[in-house]
Write a protein that binds this DNA or RNA. Structure first.
Length: 505
RNA sequence: GCUCCGGUAGUAUAGUCCGGUCAAGUAUGCGGGCCUCUCGAGCCCGUGACCCGGGUUCAAAUCCCGGCCGGAGCACCA
């Protein structure tokens, strides 16, 4: 239809459809990226968007994606978090080609460590930690740095043999103690951790640090493009240097500042504090930026994907997205497929005098006929929303949608009295939603808002609204997202009694 | 404090590398209108920005210098 009237409109839409900018030095079929979560907390939307970027680019170039858990700190890593990321990525529609853990490769890391030692590029340092830090600050080298290869090899083997306790020895890279980039000042490559790892148990006590593990793994995985947030930017030099010493080639880095949303902290520390102070009770709280939280709120994975593609750029500047940007996309996606239902928040009773008994067939969607319809029986006693009650005046003429026109006779909190006028729609009168008293279903709706306003905790970040829904509300399935007309899009949450969570208007 | 890196409308971005076509595009928000038996969707119109100050140049959002503001890093975390 539109095609005939105004084909140029469609054309324009197509052209404007934003795509990801091309990746530098990317060849079709040869791009390899990775999803590198640290399983030390629940996955959040920032991880998701970053993961999407890595996945989407690999897909765009018919490439390959790794899911690789960066789990080299046994004390931080927990099994449930590995699963949180797998579930989150899957939910977002990210399909990874292969999966591994950095903790699978300890032997390999040891091998490369030995190579570095033999190259004279790594040494075992036995300085106390404070001294290491001080020397680093003062750009001074310690005496261990000049040990011979054999002595380092011996010390290293004794480290592996369990001869030293935590903090008694580390393997350090011979970098440049005078470098302006502090990460180059002889960084630690391995340290001793006497704590079981969820995957390898007590087998290993010498664990690589991030930069070493990543350098090796990115090479082993054949990663060509690293898309990551900018807090890692200073590590490029180090990781590249390690690989160069080992004769490995380097990937291309694309870095960008974190994805943050207004009034919504993403840090584990802050989120945990909200739980501990009782402001939130669970990690999947719909106000939280965790993947479980936004899923529960009713944000579609497709919306996050489209948002990532259209609203994102590779900027180093700090940015804080307004939730409305995501909501707008979500709403557009939901609109054609969400069933429309009647819900009356803060209800007030309405008695219509002279109302005939009416049975109406109400479509679930104004345009999408496939969604079907339901029958509602009405006999003159209804609930209407408190908001509509506040606004009405005696003498007003208004319409109960799909049902009848009426005139307000009396307005009291206990009930409103009205007079039946007619059934056919009248022009220019207010249309309101209604629920027959006979079939009213008690409904609770959680309405999430931003957690912080100007760095202060928002006292109204979660409201609970009570009201009545029509009978069909009972049949809404868990996870289904419906639109309560003139209220907003809401997802049915897992609770016996109808509990909904409002996503947005 | 030190070292890097940024600053385009309320928000997020395009443009900045290779100065002119940018009196700055898009999305969202906001205001108004049309349409609609939803204050949703759709359509139309409007609103609103190149951090500040110098310099280079015929010409600067784009290059240079200074200032201000913001972010990141400065771990035996990732």
């Amino acid at each position: 239809m539109l095609m005939e009237i105004a084909p140029e409109l469609l054309e324009r839409k197509k052209v404007e459809e934003k795509k990801l900018p091309p990746l530098p030095n990317a060849e079709k079929g040869k791009v390899v990226t990775r999803l590198p979560p640290e399983p030390s907390g629940y996955m959040h939307i920032g991880h998701g968007m970053s993961g999407l970027l890595n996945y989407l680019y690999a897909k765009m170039y018919d490439g390959f994606v790794w899911l690789r858990f960066e789990d080299t700190d046994p004390r931080k890593v927990k099994p449930e978090y590995y699963e949180s990321f797998r579930r989150g990525y899957r939910w977002l529609g990210i399909e990874w080609d292969d999966e591994k853990n950095n903790s699978d490769d300890l032997e390999l890391f040891y091998k490369y460590a030995e190579k570095l030692i033999k190259l004279g590029k790594a040494y075992v340092c036995r300085c106390p930690i404070e001294r290491i830090r001080r020397f680093r600050r003062e750009m001074k080298e310690c005496e261990h740095r000049s040990q011979g290869v054999d002595e380092n090899l011996d010390l290293w083997n004794r480290m592996l043999g369990g001869e030293f306790g935590e903090g008694e020895a580390i393997l350090r890279l011979k970098g440049d103690m005078r470098s302006k980039n502090t990460v180059m000042r002889d960084p630690a490559l391995f340290r001793i951790i006497d704590h079981p790892h969820p995957l390898t148990g007590k087998r290993y006590k010498v664990w690589p640090l991030y930069d070493f593990a990543v350098s090796i793994e990115d090479h082993v995985c054949g990663v060509t493009h690293v898309l990551r947030t900018s807090e890692f930017a200073l590590r490029d030099e180090l990781q590249n240097y390690i690989r160069e010493l080992l004769g490995m080639s380097n990937p291309i880095y694309v870095e960008y500042s974190r994805f943050e949303f207004k009034g919504t902290p993403v840090s584990k520390r802050k989120l945990r504090a909200l739980i501990e102070t009782g402001i939130a009770s669970r990690w999947d709280d719909p106000r939280f930026p965790t993947i479980d939280g936004i899923r529960r709120r009713g944000i579609l994975p497709e919306a996050i994907k489209e948002f990532t593609i259209t609203q994102t750029g590779f900027s180093y500047a700090k940015r804080e997205y307004d939730w409305s940007l995501l909501f707008a996309i979500n709403r557009r996606l939901l609109d054609p497929k969400a069933r429309r239902l009647f819900f009356t928040p803060n209800p007030v009773k309405l008695l219509v005098e002279g109302s005939p008994k009416i049975s109406v067939d109400v479509p679930y969607h104004p345009d999408n006929r496939e969604l079907g319809s339901r029958k509602i029986e009405a006999d003159g006693e209804f609930y209407i929303s408190g908001g509509d009650f506040e606004e009405m005046k005696v003498g007003d003429v208004l319409r109960l949608k799909y049902l009848m026109n009426l005139k307000i006779l009396e307005k009291k909190r206990e009930h409103v009295r009205a007079e039946f006028l007619s059934r056919e729609p009248m022009k220019n009168i207010k249309i309101i939603q209604w629920v027959p008293v006979d079939e009213a279903v008690r409904v609770r709706v959680m309405v999430p808002d931003i957690l912080y306003i100007n760095d202060e905790v928002n006292p109204n970040s979660l409201k609970i609204i009570n009201g009545f829904g029509e009978r069909a509300v009972e049949d809404v399935k868990v996870d289904e997202i419906v639109q309560f007309e003139r209220f907003g899009f809401c997802r049915r949450d897992l609770e016996p009694e109808p509990l909904f969570i409002k996503a947005h208007d």
